[in-house]
Amino acid sequence: MKKYLFFDSEKCSACGACALACMDQNDIDIPAGEQPFRNTFTLEGKTGDLHFYSVSCMHCIDAPCVMGCPSGCLTKDPETGFTLYDNTNCISCHSCAMACPYGIPTFGTDGKMRKCDACIERQKAGMKPACVKICPTGALTLLTEEEFRARQVAEQKRKARLMMEKQLLE
């Protein structure tokens, strides 16, 4: 069953708990120069309003990183749809990082590629990804394909309603 890591920016407070949980789960060593798989940040809008984001691998349907890897370290999991890696054969060429439009693949102190795998081992054990489990506001959730499609439809309806309300006010 296909799954999605869903992020709701309206619920996010950019507290960083998801990033810390990810670093802990994946033994990421920031002082040694390793990059986290998940980052949070805040952007200020033109009117001074703040927008909070939590970003990691997008697990693209047609993942360019998978196509860009010459040694086959990256694959699409046919069951979940997540982009997974096995860096055993990684040749540290950085082709995956260059192919990724989001610059997501990172490289450990051993020079081998690493990235978010949606905590696939935790999921296989019946647990949520670390970032989802720790999120205090519920901004990050793990959804089935059916739940994801329902959220998309609801979001489209919400946006259409807001546009109609805006037009009525003008």
Rank of each mutant, 00 (worst) to 15 (best):
L5C: 05
F6G: 02
S13H: 04
G16K: 10
A17P: 01
C22H: 03
D24E: 15
P31L: 10
A32M: 11
F37E: 05
T40Y: 06
T40S: 14
L43C: 04
T47P: 00
G48Y: 04
S54A: 15
S56R: 13
S56Q: 15
C57S: 14
C57P: 07
M58H: 13
D62H: 14
A63G: 13
M67W: 03
G72I: 06
T75C: 10
K76Y: 01
D77Y: 09
T80K: 08
F82M: 14
F82K: 09
T83I: 15
D86H: 07
D86G: 13
N87K: 09
T88K: 12
T88Q: 09
I91E: 03
S92Y: 00
C93V: 06
H94T: 15
S95C: 15
M98E: 14
P101N: 11
P105F: 02
P105A: 12
F107I: 04
F107G: 01
G111N: 11
M113Y: 00
M113S: 10
R114C: 06
A118M: 06
A118T: 06
C119S: 12
E121L: 14
Q123H: 05
G126H: 07
M127W: 03
K128G: 00
V132A: 04
K133W: 03
K133G: 05
T137A: 12
T137M: 08
T137H: 10
T137N: 15
A139K: 06
L140Y: 01
T141R: 11
E147D: 08
A150L: 11
R151G: 01
Q152L: 06
Q152Y: 00
A154I: 00
E155M: 07
Q156H: 07
Q156Y: 05
R158E: 10
L168E: 12
L169Y: 08
L169H: 04
E170G: 10
